[in-house]
Design a binder for these strands. Structure first.
Lengths: 349, 349
DNA sequence: TTGAAAGCGTTACCAT
DNA sequence: ATGGTAACGCTTTCAA
C-alpha cells in the first residue's frame, strides 16, 4: 500500500492525503479523520526511502564505534550510551545507524557517510587525546557530538562527558581525609583521554594537600582482571606499599580483590579500595552494606542528553557549540583509614 | 556533487556514468577509467537515499534489542555480536540500523519497519521461550535471523546459537568425572530460552549417570554479583552443601568467589567452580594458570555468521530455513575432586 | 480546503 | 558503447 493507492481508495489526491498525515493545518478535520482511519485500516506507513529523498533529510543518526583490534571486546559502556540515545531518536522519528570502524578506515568512513547523505549527524565514541577524527568531522561540516572529550583539539566541538577529573579528585580526597598518604592509582590506557583526566583529578587532590605524586603508585593498562590482579600484587609486595587503591574500572577491581585476599589482607581493614565505573548495575553492592566505595555515572542518561544535543545542533547548525559535563555519584562503602601498623609506618616517614 | 553534475563535467550522460560506477560490462574500459577518476577527484558517492528509492532496496539490516526495564543495562553480549555482524554488512555495502524497543512496543515496531521499507531484514536478539515476536516476523514476510533460539515456536525460522545445552552437559560431566555428586547450578532467569537449555544440559549429564536432580541445588536469577554472592552463601550454609558450583555467567561468579572466600573456603580445594560466559576476554585467566574452569563461545564470530545467514536469506528468500549451532570452548582450570572431608561425607550417603 | 505538477537523485528500460 | 526517458514514492510549490 502506497500513497497513491491510499488516495485512490479515498477519492482524494495524494497531496491532500500527505498533508493530512503530516499534520498540515490547511486540511479539514473531517478529511484528516477519514485519512487517518484509512491509513490505520490498511496499515499504511509512508515509504522511508521515498520520504528521505523527497525531504532531503536522512532522518538517521550515525554512531561511530572505533575498534582498534579485531579481537577486542566492545566496551559495554557504548551499548548503554547508545541505548539511551536510541530511545530519544525514536521519539523524534529518527533511526540509529551503527558503524563499526577499524581505526585506519575512519576518515574515509566519515567522508563517505557525509557525501552519500546517509546520516544527518553522528556521535563519536571513544575519543583519544588530540583525536584527528574531530578535525575531519569539523571540516566535513557534518553535525556531530563527541561522547567524551579530546584534549588539544584546536577547534570547538559539541561534547557530553562525565566529570572524570572531579570524580577522581573526590575519591582521592576521601582517602586523604581518612588519613591515607600512599594512594595507588590503577588507571586505564594512557592514550585514552578519560584516563588522562582521571590522573589529573588524582594529582590535583594530592597537590592540594601538598603531597608529592609518587609515579611508582600510578599505572596505566588495559582494564582487564589480569591487569588488576598483577598490578595490585606488585603494589602490595613493594617495599613501601600503598594503604589505599583507586581503581579505574570494576574489572581490574575484581583482580585487585583477589590479589588482596591472596595476600591475606582484608579490604576496608588492611587496605581501602575505591572503584570507579561508568556502570555498576551488574555489580551493585549488597543492600545497605556496600562492599567497596564506588563512584559511577549514568551512562544511559548521558546518551539521551547527547542525542538531545545532536538533534538540537541539526535543527540549529549555526549556533555555538554545546557542552555537558555530568557529575558522578560517590557511594561511601568499606573505606577506612590505614591499618594501625601502616599508620605507624607512615608516621615514621 | 551529484550524478548529473558529474556527467556534465565529463560530457557523458548520467546513464553512462551510473553504469561505469556500478561495474556494468557494456561500458568501455577507457570511459570507465575516466569516470572512476573523476568520481575520486570530485569525491563523489551516489546519494544513498536516491539509490535506495530507485533500486527498491533499503540496503540496511535492522537489529532489534529488547529492553524490558528502562533502567536495565544492555547485555554486553549484544554489542559484541552486533560488532561482528556489522563488519560483515559493511563488506557487502549494507548499513546497520539499531532499534532499542520496549517489550510492549515490539510487534508494532516490526510492522512499522517492514511497511515503511526501512530494512531488508532483521536480527532478533534475546528471544524468550515461545517468543511471540517470531510468529509476528514470519507473518510479516520480513527475512530474519534469531540470535539464540525459542522453544515451542510452531514454525521454522533461521537461527544462530551457541550450544548451551552441550556446554553445560560437558561442564557437569567434568565435575562428575572428578567425583562430585552434589553440583549446584546457578542459572539465569527461567524465562530466557538459553537458561532453559543450560538447565537441560545439566540435568542430562546427571541423568546419564543415574543421579537424581536435586531441585534445591538449582536456582534462577538475574545475573548480578549480588545474586551470585547471596546464592552461593546460602548454598554453602545449607545442611548438605554442594561440593561444586556451575555458574551461568562471570558476573555472579565474582559474587560466588567472594562468598566462598568469606566462608573461609578455597576454590579448587574445598569447592570446585566452573564458569560459563559468552565472552571472557576481560576476565581472562592469568597466563598458564587458569583461576577457574571456564567455558566460552566466540560471540563476534557468531554475529558474523548470523549476518552471512541473513544476507543469504535476503538474496534467496524461498530457500529453506537455516540453522547454526556453535560449540563453546571449555578451559580446564582449578577444578578438582571434592575435598576429603566432603568426600567422606558423600560416601556416607 | 483541495489538486496538478514539478522535483528529489538515482536506476533501468528502450532506443540508437 | 552511449543516451533519452520513465519510474521509484514521496513532498512542496503554485494554482484554483
Amino acid at each position: 500500500m502506497n500513497l497513491k493507492e491510499l488516495s485512490n481508495r479515498l477519492g482524494l489526491s495524494p497531496t491532500t492525503v500527505s498533508r493530512a498525515l503530516n499534520g498540515y493545518p490547511e486540511v479539514s478535520e473531517r478529511t484528516r479523520k477519514r485519512v487517518m482511519d484509512a491509513a490505520a485500516q490498511y496499515n499504511y506507513s509512508p515509504n522511508s526511502r521515498a520520504k528521505r529523498l523527497a525531504t532531503g533529510r536522512a532522518m538517521t543518526i550515525g554512531h561511530l564505534l572505533p575498534m582498534s583490534k579485531e579481537h577486542e571486546m566492545v566496551n559495554p559502556i557504548f551499548s548503554d550510551f547508545i541505548a539511551g540515545a536510541g530511545r530519544r531518536y525514536a521519539e523524534e522519528g529518527y533511526d540509529l545507524m551503527l558503524t563499526v570502524v577499524r581505526d585506519e578506515d575512519e576518515a574515509e568512513t566519515y567522508r563517505d557517510l557525509a557525501t552519500r547523505g546517509a546520516v544527518d549527524g553522528v556521535v563519536l565514541h571513544g575519543p583519544k587525546t588530540n583525536d584527528p577524527r574531530i578535525t575531519t568531522l569539523t571540516s566535513l561540516g557534518l553535525p556531530f557530538v563527541v561522547h567524551g572529550r579530546s584534549s588539544n583539539v584546536p577547534t570547538e566541538y559539541n561534547w557530553v562527558d562525565v566529570n572524570n577529573r572531579r570524580a577522581f579528585e573526590r575519591a582521592t580526597s576521601l582517602l586523604l581525609d581518612l588519613g591515607h598518604r600512599r594512594i595507588a592509582l590503577v588507571n586505564g590506557l594512557a592514550e585514552l583521554d578519560f584516563a588522562m583526566r582521571r590522573g589529573a583529578g588524582y594529582s590535583d587532590a594530592l597537590q592540594a594537600r601538598r603531597i608529592a605524586v609518587d609515579e611508582d603508585l600510578i599505572s596505566h593498562g588495559e582494564m582487564t582482571e589480569t591487569y588488576g590482579y598483577a598490578r595490585t600484587r606488585a603494589l602490595l609486595r613493594a617495599p613501601c606499599p600503598p594503604t589505599a587503591l583507586i581503581l579505574s574500572s570494576i574489572i581490574p577491581a575484581i583482580g585487585a580483590r583477589r590479589a588482596i585476599s591472596d595476600a591475606g589482607l582484608e579490604i576496608g581493614k588492611d587496605v581501602s579500595v575505591v572503584v570507579y565505573d561508568d556502570d555498576l548495575s551488574y555489580f551493585r553492592n549488597d543492600g545497605d552494606v556496600p562492599t567497596y566505595t564506588a563512584a559511577r555515572s549514568s551512562v544511559r542518561y548521558a546518551g539521551r542528553r547527547a542525542a538531545d544535543m545532536l538533534l538540537d545542533t541539526i535543527a540549529n547548525p549555526t549556533a555555538s557549540k554545546r557542552h555537558l559535563l555530568l557529575e558522578a555519584e560517590l557511594t561511601i562503602g568499606q573505606s577506612t583509614g590505614p591499618a594501625p601498623e601502616m599508620r605507624r609506618y607512615l608516621d615514621q616517614g
